[in-house]
Design a binder for these strands. Structure first.
Length: 904
RNA sequence: GCGCGCGUGGUGGAAUGGCAGACACGCCAGACUUAGGAUCUGGUUCCGUAAGGAUUAGAGGUUCAAGUCCUCUCGCGCGCACCA
């Protein structure tokens, strides 16, 4: 730790103001019909003090949200406060702008590390989690963020996860009605004629629920001891920890997110997210238009249905491929091929996901012995199985058109299958083999000669007419695997029963039984038989009526799917969120709706952000929330790297701990640096020297405002005063005698208003780095003024306040002694407006170019007409050598910008 | 492989198509000082004593004018990855 002298006493100022804000609950947001206490600055500003405020009396709302953190044992990381600082600056800016700002914080506190720690030590995850939350709270509070702590929540709070379970029940008790195109209560589902018995009705109903049970191969991670969603598996490894993942058939809970694929895709157009993020979601949803086509199996009544985006290439289909898992494989395989097919199925099943992707180069497969009939030309084509065809996409079977599909082309060459051209590239020199783009249909019967889009239309119509196929839209998005074999998650409000025939079936617990608490355990490991840890609690597991509880728990994403809603009404005991609160905080304000600004890392691009949108849409369909989208504007902050330009990690030893930075430079400098580093969205390396730079800037601000002699007295007094009483000594520091409550010079006003303009515009556009540089320019200028007008310095403090709130408040309070009538509370003082008239120049400098090259600058009156500008430009001294002996052929004048002389 | 984004001084970064390098860091020189890792002043893209010239990854193009728009190449980052 450095022993260098402090630039200013932030160590006293910062705790002082944090205490003040907490004492007066300065940043509490008021809901409709809340009572606003007499002395609250929000009430004073909006004339609501001492009143109960109905929705229409409240100012417009602004909901600014951070992605809440997982409270890890490692504590806060410098990456966390980057987004939090940005949102805090905007929250403070909007408050000053007269908005009712909702700016909450909470904890995404279910999760694996606490559970793994529990497995090792036997310490209950709740104990670990609470200790971590305490530490995170301390760290976050020490940064002076203006959160409304009265709305703090943790996903592990019983009062919170009770409602998470409640929402699950809504999913369970709903189905997606394709006719109304929305989710409806399961009661509106009509049974088909065939579902006569109670058991059949139950089965039918269960097959339609938004939350359903599926027995299918899932992503099993042995190391983590749990299954994972597709979104949590990256390159065949777990997103958390990077452990191998294998396919394993298991009984699991799924959420029918695929029913919302179309809406999740279409509604991206209604929200203000970055293009790259929208693109990631689009790719993940993966919509593709094409056709399903039925191929008859030769010598059999069966058909194989395939999905293709290129029905126009049907005449070029020379073979078919089924995925090894396809249900027709055993049926169609001929006796001679049986052994080979079985061997191949085993070979494919034994591959891990990792091997499937990494060894994708070389195609493999075997012939089944069967032939299918191409519906357009009645030709017999062989049916193969190969693992390059995925069971989980489309119909799990394809028609192979080797001439115009790279994968089929590779496969056909390896196994010597015929390749027939059916598309002619528009560019005649292009090789048609392996040509996959649009062209002209050839060798294709009745579609020959048509351009690809027309050929697609015509053949699809033909297939539909002959009842051989139909236009189809397919999505890459799979249903969301929603259960985990863990302890530290929300238990499902579900029990299992046996019917008369001895079949297990599931049933939801009634809402009145919520919350379902997890049992207390001694041992958090799975059972020896591989059951989830909850199965260890025999008393909990078995209900008196003989039914058994579901032992899986929900994934960590469950809690984060709706926390932004709970913040709007965090204490509501009757409902997950009240109608008034939802209407006020999430309502439209004349634009697309929801959270006005949501800031967080890109790592949640397809996980949290897709899941939360899905839940929100279900709640919207069911009438529980007022908007179709949760987050109107979303910004991803960039990664902060270590000083070496590498990703921060313990193993690299380049992790910067915010506590250390705070101790040495203070919270205001830390906040300022995080914003000064560069654009919020960019990845950028940490640089301790850079912190010193902004710290020095704050020191200059301090010295601009305070009297140096009094500061020396203060410092001497501090050394002989006990620590706890030092804060009171701040009163010894007097205002800089150069500051006068008199008129400002035009130059001072101009400097101020230029700064107001720049900072305001930059805040609107979230350009924090350039806003800070504008304030630096102001201070560099102001420090040279012999007499400093209080009326110029005061608005500057308002500009500084969102960035460095502690220092600004301290100086504001000192300056108030000079300027009577100053609002007591800086945080709610109305944001200064710039006066354009003060920025107008009578004379401006404009550059003179000769043949497009900059040569000189001339000073002219702003309202000078073109003739004068031209004349002045021709006289510009440094331009003379380039004009001598030449004729000016053309003069280009951009008013107030530049003049360009074109000479021969 | 496909998609998206980005390449500007020694460093982080600024520049509605109109004076490239704002604002900082670092460095150099000076002032104050017992001292400086405090503070203040000045300088700092490169070549050149200067006048001037070159310069925004590279090559070409549009334009009176290009870091900015277009085309190609190279490099980096992110995402997806046999999705038919």
């Amino acid at each position: 730790m450095s022993s260098s002298r402090r630039q200013y006493p932030f160590h006293l100022i910062e705790p002082k103001w944090q205490q003040t804000w907490e004492d007066e609950q300065a940043f509490r947001a008021f809901n409709p019909n809340d009572f606003v206490s007499e002395g609250h600055p929000f009430g004073i500003r909006h004339k609501l003090a001492g009143k109960t405020a109905p929705a229409d009396s409240l100012p417009p709302k602004f909901y600014i949200l951070d992605m809440f953190p997982y409270p890890s044992g490692a504590g806060l990381h410098v990456g966390h406060p980057e987004g939090y600082t940005a949102t805090d600056i905007l929250a403070r800016y909007r408050r000053a702008g007269g908005f009712n700002v909702l700016h909450p914080m909470g904890w995404d506190s279910f999760g694996l590390p606490a559970e793994q720690y529990a497995v090792k030590t036997g310490r209950h995850p709740r104990v670990t989690t609470e200790a971590n939350i305490t530490n995170f709270t301390r760290q976050i509070k020490s940064l002076g963020f203006s959160y409304d702590w009265s709305r703090e929540l943790a996903t592990t709070d019983v009062e919170y996860f009770k409602w998470t379970q409640w929402i699950f029940l809504k999913l369970y008790n709903s189905w997606f009605n394709p006719e109304t195109n929305k989710a409806e209560p399961i009661e509106t589902l009509k049974f088909p004629e065939s579902a006569g018995t109670e058991e059949k009705q139950r089965t039918y109903r269960d097959s339609k629920r938004l939350a359903y049970v599926s027995e299918a191969p899932v992503n099993w991670c042995p190391e983590l001891g749990t299954v994972l969603a597709n979104e949590e598996v990256i390159d065949g490894k777990s997103e958390v920890g990077g452990f191998p993942v294998i396919r394993k058939p298991m009984r699991q809970w799924m959420l029918r997110i695929t029913a919302y694929a179309e809406k999740l895709l279409a509604d991206l157009d209604s929200i203000d997210w970055s293009d790259s993020l929208k693109e990631m979601q689009r790719n993940w949803i993966g919509r593709s238009e094409g056709a399903e086509v039925d191929f008859q199996i030769a010598g059999s009544a069966g058909t194989i249905r395939v999905f293709t985006t290129r029905p126009d290439t049907l005449f070029g289909a020379t073979y078919m491929v089924l995925s090894p898992e396809h249900r027709l494989v055993p049926e169609i395989t001929t006796p001679e091929q049986k052994a080979a097919v079985e061997a191949y199925k085993n070979f494919a099943a034994g591959k891990s996901d990792l091997e499937r992707t990494e060894l994708a180069k070389e195609k493999t497969g075997v012939f089944t012995g069967a032939y299918a009939i191409n519906p357009v030309n009645r030709k017999q084509i062989p049916v193969w199985i190969a693992d390059y065809v995925l069971a989980s996409y489309g119909t799990g079977a394809i028609m192979a058109v080797p001439a115009h599909d790279e994968r089929d082309f590779e496969f056909a060459r390896k196994f010597n299958l015929p390749i027939i051209q059916v598309v002619q590239p528009n560019e005649p020199k292009t090789d048609w083999q392996g040509f996959t783009e649009d062209g002209i249909a050839v060798n294709s019967g009745f579609i020959t000669g048509l351009a690809t889009p027309d050929a697609k239309k015509k053949i699809t119509a033909w297939l539909e007419e002959k009842n051989l196929g139909k236009k189809t839209i397919n999505f890459k998005l799979r249903d969301w695997l929603f259960s985990r074999q863990r302890y530290w998650g929300e238990p499902f409000p579900i029990i299992w029963k046996k019917d008369a025939a001895g079949n297990l079936y599931h049933e939801a617990l009634p809402e009145t039984s919520l919350p379902v608490l997890p049992p207390t355990l001694e041992d958090y490991k799975p059972t020896p038989s591989g059951e989830p840890p909850l199965a260890r609690a025999k008393d909990w597991l078995h209900l008196p009526d003989g039914s058994i509880r579901e032992t899986n728990t929900m994934p960590q994403w469950a809690g984060s799917c709706w926390y932004y809603l709970r913040y709007t009404d965090a204490k509501n005991a009757q409902s997950f969120v009240g109608k008034d609160a939802d209407n006020y905080w999430m309502a439209s304000n004349g634009k697309a709706a929801g959270v006005d600004l949501y800031v967080g890392g890109t790592e949640h691009a397809v996980l949290h952000l897709l899941y939360a949108r899905f839940w929100h849409k279900v709640l919207f369909d069911l009438g529980y929330v007022s908007t179709p989208e949760p987050f109107y504007k979303l910004v991803n902050q960039g990664l902060i790297q270590g000083e070496d330009g590498q990703k921060m990690s313990k193993s690299r030893g380049n992790v910067v701990n915010p506590d250390d930075v705070l101790a040495e430079y203070g919270a205001d400098a830390f906040r300022l640096y995080e914003m000064f580093m560069g654009p919020l969205q960019d990845t950028k390396p940490w640089n301790t020297k850079g912190v010193e730079g902004v710290y020095r800037f704050l020191g200059r601000v301090w010295r601009l405002f305070v009297d140096e002699h009094s500061e020396t007295e203060f410092e001497q007094a501090e050394t002989i005063t006990e620590t706890t009483k030092r804060r009171e000594l701040l009163g010894l520091i007097k205002i800089n005698p150069a500051i006068k409550d008199g008129p400002a010079t035009p130059a001072q006003l101009k400097t101020l208003h230029a700064c107001i303009k720049k900072v305001t515009e930059d805040l609107e556009a979230m350009r924090f780095n350039t806003a800070i540089s504008a304030m630096m320019v102001f201070v560099n200028e102001a420090i040279t003024w012999e007499t400093k007008a209080a009326q110029v310095l005061q608005p500057f403090l308002q500009l500084l306040a969102p960035f460095a709130p502690h220092l600004a408040e301290e100086l504001w309070a000192k300056l108030a002694t000079l300027a009577p009538g100053t609002p007591a509370n800086l945080a709610y003082a109305p944001w200064p407006k710039f006066d354009a008239a003060l920025l107008v120049e009578s004379e401006i400098e404009i550059p003179v170019q000769v043949n497009g090259k900059f040569r000189d600058v001339i000073k002219i009156a702003v309202d000078a007409d073109n003739a004068i500008i031209e004349a002045q430009a021709k006289l510009a001294e440094k331009a003379q050598p380039f004009l001598a002996g030449k004729t000016v052929r053309k003069v280009i004048i951009v008013p107030k910008k530049m003049v360009n002389l074109i000479v021969s």
